[in-house]
Design a protein around this nucleic acid. Structure first.
Lengths: 228, 228
DNA sequence: CGTCGCGTTGAAATCCATCAAACGACGTGG
DNA sequence: CCACGTCGTTTGATGGATTTCAACGCGACG
């Protein structure tokens, strides 16, 4: 959508993103290389196959990383939360799509300049390594979760994870929250069909674990029933 | 199995592993911190839940990274090839199992000392970042592959991937090779059961795509039939 | 008011897991 | 050398969970 210079001073993730590892002077150097950009829900940031010439840190909102097979069915590989880094350093072409789930804001860099910064500032390289390791753990956890679990278990675990992500307190899940994903996106993330997701949510409501509030609102009634 | 000092001079992955990014003096410093160790097929290098106090580079052989659910069924999350790095920096506890698939050799480090080396040598941090990014891509590719594909397609894609890994030439798959995994391990990797894997391999043989040579030998007859 | 997108619900078909049995390779011991 | 047990693999029969196909409800929007 729009694009403008960075304003790190008011950045909500300035102490959690990769750039937080830099000292004041280094960070303002890096800030000069990047641009702030807003994305509308559904807007594509990077597309698979495109020239991989940019990377970004998510400041606000939520992104998805996904792959689409030849028939056009989408498989969501990861959700990105604020302070997350997207873009593949070292690869000539983008291999996955990166799309905004909600209205979002990112700090956008050219890959070339960001890689140069990684060379120049060892602390940035280490911070990205840490983040990449966490992403790797997240990807493997998702894989462990989606393989070998029934549709019911996947949907329940997903709802619980979203409740925890929506909560302010780190440990307790939010009781009431809105799903940031459509049914199609949930299906793509969990490796199910839209209909199966819908049926499982209906079943969870019928057995008293949750209550639906409108299309995307969820209220946790019995978290234990979800398998927590 | 056994353990002894490192001998980088004769290391088969000395120009591909993370430590290859170091200059001569730096590498010999790092070598002093590590120990060479051999693993028998099936031997566990790290176990989930253990104190995460070590990490390693694979020199020869093959490893698997896996998670086991409460019922004991194993889900393989990644295969590790020579020059690969295993161990999770920055995490207090190991969260996955790491097991040798074949007789293997690793360079073993204490996590504490390796992290210190990452601080000291920026080139090592960048090399690990690169490797971690590739692992992340690999994990996501596997996820995209396993989700939304039939048992037949998964087995076919797996065989093709193994044929390519077994080949010396980077681009063409090997025509004849041995599977490094048991049926149970293939099932765990692909999210299927042993029986389904076995049936699909039989079916692929029946339709002329492959020929079996003993229990683990595979000969590619019609690679196109496998969906390449 | 009609259409479009998204979600829900139903009925039928399909694919895979499960249960069960037999086979082959291998090593041990007689 | 052969009998025997074990382990991994193969094959068959069955059932069940999820996909597929199809119809409907509902809100948004022109």
């Amino acid at each position: 959508m729009s694009s403008s210079p960075l304003a790190c001073a008011t950045c909500p993730v300035r102490d959690r993103a990769a750039c937080a590892a830099l000292d004041k002077g280094e960070r303002s150097d890096l800030a000069r290389l990047g641009r702030h950009r807003t994305l509308a829900a559904g807007e594509t940031l990077f597309a698979a196959g495109d020239d991989n010439d940019r990377c970004a840190t998510l400041v606000r909102g939520a992104l998805k990383i996904s792959a689409s097979d030849e028939e056009g069915t989408e498989r969501i590989l990861s959700l990105v939360h604020p302070a997350g880094f997207v873009g593949e350093l070292f690869a000539p072409l983008a291999r996955f799509d990166v799309v905004a789930l909600t209205n979002s804001e990112v700090c956008l860099f050219t890959r070339h300049e960001y890689e140069a910064a990684v060379e120049r500032y060892p602390a940035l390289a280490r911070a990205l390594l840490r983040r990449s390791s966490e992403d790797l753990f997240g990807a493997r956890s998702l894989m462990a979760m989606v393989g070998r679990h029934s549709a019911r278990e996947r949907v329940a675990a997903f709802l619980l994870a979203m409740a925890e992500a929506a909560s302010d307190s780190p440990c307790h899940p939010a009781v009431r929250f809105d799903l940031p994903l459509s049914r199609a996106e949930m299906a793509g993330l969990l490796g199910l069909t839209i209909e199966t997701v819908s049926r499982q949510i209906s079943a969870l409501e019928k057995c008293g674990a949750i209550r639906r509030k409108g299309l995307r609102g969820i209220e946790l009634v019995d978290a234990a029933e979800l398998g927590s």
